[in-house]
Write a protein that binds this DNA or RNA. Structure first.
Lengths: 96, 96
DNA sequence: CAAGTATTTGGCTTTTTGGCAAAATAGTAA
DNA sequence: TTACTATTTTGCCAAAAAGCCAAATACTTG
């Protein structure tokens, strides 16, 4: 039974886990508006750029974002836009 | 700026984080079918009952589930049913 | 090529999480 | 009350996550 859990739910859980950090959730919402480079996100959040870079790679590894290179900057882009609907669900709850 | 992130996204992130574990995701899907007591969930998952109890309290603390007592057993119930739609979003992605 | 900017990676420490086992709590029933 | 069952809490340990700094990598430009 353990096996079934791990096989069927692990991938989904990875996505939820990636969204389970306030900074990453903030990043997702910023990228929902428009693509942003790492330095822009770093300036907005205020953490070290290496910290932001690591958050972005967490999001990238589960397919929520991808990126495009422009010159020497890297612009991240929200790829899995349906995660925005997921947040609405959470917000609904909070209102109650 | 840190402040804004923490204040506006921390609550949502807590919910995502609660779903970010395969066992908890499995539990949510079982409860979507019908209420279950801790011992039933324990039997299905195969972990120690104390481990299951902790997973349930994580889900309860963020409002995803609640429970009702019946005799000496405690039946957990899926309260925030919209999380099921959230999973669909994830599955959509995986198909691609 | 060297210098400068942007980003990622590695190393390190601190904090959090997950799991089990044992003790504590709650409820039932003899 | 005692015994029994169900669940939670506590303590402990190992593993994973988060964050910063420094080093490495990538790209541009002089």
């Amino acid at each position: 039974m353990r096996k079934e859990i791990l096989d069927n739910y692990e991938k989904d859980a990875e996505v939820f886990k990636a969204l389970g950090h306030p900074t990453r959730l903030f990043i997702v919402h910023q990228l929902a508006k428009e693509d942003k480079c790492v330095c822009e996100l770093t300036a907005m959040v205020g953490d070290d750029i290496s910290t932001i870079s690591k958050h972005l790679s967490v999001l990238k590894n589960v397919g929520i974002v991808d990126y495009l290179k422009k010159g020497n900057q890297i612009f991240y882009r929200l790829k899995l836009r349906c995660v925005l609907d997921m947040t609405v669900c959470v917000d609904d709850k909070r209102v109650r």
